[in-house]
């Protein structure tokens, strides 16, 4: 479902993604782990056609991300690491906007939006402006939005960042259910090792733009002689804290996610 070959992304002076290759099979839940600044978001941006790779090949759902952009874009849904809602619109309007961009006809659109908003328990708040939502509510809305067009692949970039345990559990259970029911492929990143351990069929660990290991959680623990994924992760990526993680824009939006917005 996702095929990546020798993918490289260079920004002026740094190589954010350094020659990585991997495959994700249809229906698989794939966790992409790594310290801050490892290149996870950059990889997702290339997989979702937001960034043009410096070199390398990407295929999503059998379509090349270079030449068949439109088909690729139809194939996936995404929940971004930082905010991506229009806060001046209501929850319902954000959903509707998305559905229209994806060419979903009116009847079906109404049905799906209602179904999804009820599912993430935002139906009662559907006519409230998003700027009045809490962080968790926005996150739930973003997830619902990413599913409106029934994507074949769902990208989740740290979807549980800043969420309470209840919402996190709810979210993963739902993702798992969708994955089973619709055979939807899931590509996720997270810094919570237990989450990855619990949900992922396959895990890749990336550090400084390179994949250091790839396999099931069991295999990774065995290879590194660790009894938990977290220990394996630390062994593979070392103890020191990564100084730099995201661009200033990303930082701004992340701050906003944590401390709420004021405009």
């Amino acid at each position: 479902m996702i095929e990546v070959e020798n993918l490289v992304k260079k920004f002026e002076d740094i190589t954010a993604v350094d020659n990585i290759s991997f495959d994700v099979k249809e229906g698989e839940i794939f966790a992409f782990l790594g310290p801050n600044g490892a290149g996870k978001t950059t990889t997702i941006k290339m997989l979702t056609t937001l960034l043009v790779p410096t070199s390398g090949k990407i295929k999503i759902n059998g379509f090349s991300a270079e030449t068949k952009k439109e088909e690729v874009r139809h194939s996936f849904g995404i929940v971004f690491q930082d905010e991506s809602l229009d806060e001046e619109l209501t929850a319902y309007e954000n959903m509707e906007f998305h559905a229209v961009l994806y060419g979903i006809k009116k009847e079906l659109r109404k049905r799906r939006i209602e179904e999804l908003l009820k599912l993430v328990e935002l139906w009662e708040r559907k006519d409230d402006l998003v700027k009045h939502f809490s962080g968790g509510m926005k996150r739930r809305l973003e997830i619902a939005r990413g599913l409106v067009h029934h994507p074949r692949v769902l990208f989740l970039d740290e979807p549980t960042l800043g969420l309470d345990p209840q919402t996190r559990n709810f979210l993963w259970e739902y993702i798992k259910k969708l994955n089973k029911k619709e055979n939807m492929t899931v590509f996720l990143t997270t810094h919570y090792m237990e989450e990855a351990d619990k949900i992922a069929d396959k895990i890749a660990i990336i550090d400084k733009g390179k994949i250091v290991i790839i396999g099931t959680s069991k295999e990774i623990k065995k290879k590194t002689n660790s009894d938990s994924l977290e220990k394996a992760f630390l062994k593979l990526t070392g103890k020191p804290i990564r100084e730099e993680s995201a661009t200033s824009l990303d930082h701004m939006r992340l701050r906003k996610r944590f401390f709420g917005s004021r405009r």
Partner: peptide, 17 residues
């Protein structure tokens, strides 16, 4: 504005020309 508040990404990943 949309770029800074992240909404631009939502339009750019969509299959709309």
């Amino acid at each position: 504005w949309d770029r800074q508040f992240g909404f631009l990404k939502e339009t750019l990943v969509s299959p709309v020309p």
